[in-house]
Design a protein around this nucleic acid. Structure first.
Lengths: 212, 212
DNA sequence: TCAATCCGGTACTAATCATTACCGGAGCGG
DNA sequence: CCGCTCCGGTAATGATTAGTACCGGATTGA
């Protein structure tokens, strides 16, 4: 009588609540310290729900990680708007990356992937390939394009390393503090402030005296 | 009859073996997934040893983390040799930091602090304060000195932010891969290669066309 | 309305774990 | 040489956990 909400595709009614509860607990306490009972107490329903939908605890954990990673990391892909120049492109790129990196979803995955990399090495590899590695490769392409369009000198060939440097600059102390739970995510203004400073440094250096 | 090795200060004969075994297991599997029995099986002796020396599992874990962190992070302090110029100073600083950051000891602590930051927030705070925060502050002093000695322009006032950028550049993808267990620590040559590139970028930028 | 089926919830099982009680022997004082 | 104390090792305890068996009620088809 009250279940005519989504007549179609509602193949998994409890599944979303279970995944949400599992995310909250796995991301907070880690794999080993999170019990199926605790997940069920939070999600409602019964253990049968988890075991019939995900097989076992590992299955639930892997499903959660893949799903969350897919959601978060796929958002790294967008942002194909043509920027006016390299500075604009770097700024947009940095803002985007740092936004995602300090958001609660990625912080949870990041922490958990590191914590459980010993137990689930495949997850660690997939996360790295589809996250940081992809972000770095994308930025390297941007730098290549800038060189080809004359915005960067011809002799810049090591764009991969340069891209790594810029991406690494985004994983700053603030990001680490957020991952460690020492402070809340930075505001958009804080992020912009930091990224602008990084773009400056990346483009023209810190202004040291000649003779290098 | 055979115990006259160190007649003095050997107050804790098993303690070192216990700490070594605890390090291997806690760093590899995490706090919750490591059992006292497993530690004892690896260290030899009996559980009474752990409980009389460290009180309980938490006590052992905290003692291990504090001890290891002290050893590793204190080595960030040395290196007060006067370098010839700022480039030399940055290079030495970067090599030193990256050496430590990719070493097995710090990788273990790093992973574990992140993994258990929810359960042991005080450890996370101490680690951050005495590790990355201290490293950043030290580098900011170096930059201040360079500005005061005329090697950097007078208008460079935000040395804290610049130091953060450089330190963040040291926490690169290679470091992340090592933390995730995806590759072994980089060789000294790899480290030097990367740090030199970072110093170049940091000092003079990537060589973009004027007009900024 | 009735019977068969399915699904969610409770209770159980076997294993694991942190912590503690107990025990036997080694070292020491007398 | 004897009794006491302390310390390390073993076994026990109580709690927790992943995974499963079973049961009652709801739903569906006739």
């Amino acid at each position: 009588m009250s279940d005519l909400n989504q007549p179609e595709v509602s193949r998994a009614p409890r599944q979303d609540e279970i995944l949400a509860a599992a995310a909250a607990l796995f991301f907070e306490r880690g794999y080993a310290a999170t019990s199926i009972d605790a997940i069920i107490k939070r999600a409602g329903g019964s253990k049968r729900n988890i075991y019939s939908a995900f097989g076992n605890k590992e299955g639930l954990f892997i499903a959660l990680m893949l799903e969350t990673a897919k959601d978060v990391l796929s958002s790294l892909e967008v942002d194909r708007a043509q920027p006016r120049d390299l500075r604009e492109a770097l700024l947009a790129y940095g803002l985007h990356v740092l936004d995602i990196y300090t958001g609660p979803a990625l912080v949870g995955i990041y922490r958990t992937v590191i914590a459980e990399s010993g137990r689930f090495p495949d997850l660690a590899r997939r996360f790295f390939e589809e996250g940081p590695a992809r972000a770095t490769a994308g930025l390297a392409q941007v730098l290549d394009a800038a060189r080809d369009s004359g915005e960067l000198p011809e002799n810049i060939v090591h764009t991969k390393i340069l891209a790594e440097q810029f991406v690494a600059m985004m994983r700053n102390n603030v990001h680490l503090e957020v991952v460690l739970g020492l402070r809340p995510p930075p505001s958009a203004a804080e992020i912009r402030h930091y990224v602008e400073a990084c773009v400056d440094t990346f483009l023209i250096g810190i202004g040291a005296n000649r003779r290098l």
